[in-house]
C-alpha cells in the first residue's frame, strides 16, 4: 500500500499543512457553542486554536479579526477556516499542481507569487508590531517554523520545476 501511495510534492504538502492548520481552531468554537465554561480554562482546545491562528498568514488573520469585530459573530470566524481551506484546496489543483489546468503553465508563476507572499509574511512576523505581541512566544515560534517549512517546500518544488524545464529545453 505504501508503494502504491503517490509521493506528495512539496506543494501538495504545503496545501495539506494549510488545511490541517485551518482545522485546528474549529474544535474550540464548536465546543464553546455547547459549553461556555470552556472560555474560563486554558486547555488543549484553546492551545489548538492559538496554534492554528499562528500558522495562518498573518494578514488574513487580521482581516478575519476585522470581520469578527464588524459582524460580532463567532460563526463567521468558524466558517472562514474550513471554507478558506476548501477553496484553497480546490484552487491549488487548478493553479499550483503541475498536472492541473493548461498543462501546468500557471504552476510556475503561481508558485512564485506564493513564495513571495510567504516570505513577506515571515518578514511581517519579525517586526515589533502590536499584532505580533498578542500571542505568546511559543506560538509565535511554532507559527514561524510552520510558515518557514511552507516556504522551503514551495521553493524546493519551484527549483525542481525549473531544473526539469532546463533539462527539457536542452533536449
Amino acid at each position: 500500500m505504501w508503494k502504491r501511495m503517490k509521493k506528495l510534492s512539496g506543494t501538495e504538502i504545503y496545501v495539506l499543512i494549510y488545511q490541517v492548520a485551518s482545522l485546528l481552531p474549529l474544535t474550540y468554537i464548536f465546543t464553546a457553542t455547547g459549553s461556555l465554561a470552556v472560555f474560563t480554562q486554558e486547555g488543549l482546545l484553546s492551545r489548538m486554536f492559538d496554534l492554528g491562528v499562528c500558522c495562518q498568514p498573518r494578514v488574513l488573520m487580521m482581516l478575519l479579526s476585522w470581520v469578527y469585530r464588524a459582524t460580532r459573530s463567532e460563526m463567521a470566524v468558524y466558517f472562514y477556516f474550513p471554507v478558506a481551506a476548501l477553496v484553497w484546496g480546490l484552487l491549488a489543483k487548478y493553479l499550483l499542481y503541475e498536472g492541473g489546468s493548461r498543462e501546468g503553465r500557471l504552476a510556475k508563476p503561481a508558485k512564485t507569487v506564493i513564495l513571495v507572499l510567504i516570505a513577506a509574511d515571515l518578514l511581517l512576523r519579525l517586526l515589533p508590531l502590536r499584532v505580533n505581541r498578542i500571542y505568546g512566544t511559543g506560538y509565535q515560534i511554532a507559527g514561524f517554523a510552520v510558515r518557514l517549512l511552507c516556504l522551503v517546500l514551495i521553493a524546493r518544488d519551484l527549483g525542481a520545476f525549473r531544473r526539469k524545464e532546463a533539462q527539457m529545453s536542452e533536449k
Binding site: S46, F49, M62, S65, W66, Y68, R69, E74, Y135
Partner: peptide, 10 residues
C-alpha cells in the same frame, strides 16, 4: 479565551 485574542488582533 483565544477568541478574545483573535478579536484584539485588528
Amino acid at each position: 479565551n483565544p477568541l478574545f485574542r483573535m478579536f484584539c488582533l485588528s
